[in-house]
Design a protein around this nucleic acid. Structure first.
Lengths: 215, 215
DNA sequence: AGACTGGTGTTACCGCAAGTAACTTACCGC
DNA sequence: GCGGTAAGTTACTTGCGGTAACACCAGTCT
């Protein structure tokens, strides 16, 4: 097959094309937000709609492919921070900071990933809860849970505990980051330190305020 | 349409009507999910589209009104749990449990609130800065932050810290709840206990596992 | 009475975006 | 050359959000 000598500079034409389309879609989505129309994306890629549909099936498929790209990139950054050689507190802070720096650097990508606005239109309306609830959060939660399970000694029921903590920590990071990105109430380091303090039990240690019963 | 036999309620007819419309919309949204069309909602209410638009402006307005109803209801439940007379750990657990019980009892409502899927989509986008991004999470985060600031003695920068923690804890609750609702990996009590343990610093206290460096 | 006003309701339409059908190339092995 | 497959097109259908424009039915002012 003559594909073999092509793979040196190109991959198979289909995949090459797919990459180009994804990059065009990326540009449009980053410019117009998740409401970007298929027509606009096709125009940006220099082609017309039906080709997009041949490549990605439907809008959800295209968006899913886009999301997977970015999600993978973010996850590998996070894995790197998680694997850095340092003590646990430093790793937690590095991971938080990596995540926050990422969403700070590309807020449009972040918005796209977190608020997909994908709607299967009018077909197939079942009430599946977890369907389009930001798969990025789920993946991050699962991965963090696995890391925790591998490295932290949690005694019995460690597996379940670790997954719960993974999803919980990721959710904490996400919500705090989302709010912080919108209001910028403090510096990134302050946010990282506060969240790490929270995970380090400072809520439990703090005293009640003099006037009322403690939270 | 005779109007005479509706003399029971003493509200202004407009508000009465608005309530009825919201209830109809509720039924449809709970049945069809956030993709429910304005036509369907109007049909359920026994009227036609333009009336909905006269009452709520646009689809976003209707959905916002719906969301506010449910959000207020949930928030008042949470406030009750937060104000119960008990020590801090018990309050945290009660709040977590209240939230989880709520989303467990009405997953469709929860899904609607969390995944609004509103898309301005054509004419006149550009105002509406805060857009989607689940206002419920923001409100819960702000409220919890306020409660923490009021009741917990955090020393200097307490205000900022409390808000961060509020959003962080709410996000933790949300993400863990979302995942739990989808997979049901454990009982509600187990989840509550694990999350409270996380907030109580058990991640910091736990030892590394024998084979590798700790997370 | 009779015109004026305001709320409720309708039908019929526009614009737009997702998705599809049917046709037209161009390339590649034989 | 010839037939098949992939890329590409135009032109359509469907369905939804949103908006006229008009109709009906209180009360109410003169």
């Amino acid at each position: 097959m003559d594909i073999a000598h092509r793979t040196t500079d190109r991959q198979t034409p289909a995949e090459q094309r797919r990459r180009e389309l994804l990059e065009a879609a990326d540009r449009v989505v980053l410019r117009d937000g998740p409401q970007a129309s298929m027509n606009a994306i096709a125009a940006e890629a220099g082609i017309t709609k039906p080709i997009l549909y041949r490549h990605f099936g439907d809008k959800g498929g295209l968006y899913r492919a886009l999301a997977i790209r970015h999600t993978d990139a973010l996850l590998s950054s996070l894995r790197a921070a998680l694997d850095a050689p340092a003590d646990r507190r430093r790793r937690v802070e590095a991971t938080l900071d990596t995540y926050l720096a990422s969403i700070e650097a590309m807020p449009q990508v972040y918005r796209f990933l977190m608020h997909p606005a994908e709607e299967p239109h009018q077909t197939e309306q079942g009430f599946d809860v977890g369907r389009h609830s930001a798969p990025l959060l789920r993946r991050m939660g699962e991965e963090l849970g696995q890391v925790i399970a591998e490295r932290v000694d949690l005694g019995p029921a460690a597996e379940a505990q670790a997954r719960i903590w993974g999803h919980g920590i990721v959710g904490m990071m996400h919500a705090a980051g989302d709010w912080w990105l919108g209001e910028r109430p403090c510096s990134r380091e302050d946010l990282v330190r506060s969240l790490a303090d929270l995970l380090w039990g400072r809520l439990a240690e703090a005293d009640d305020r003099p006037d009322g019963p403690g939270f």
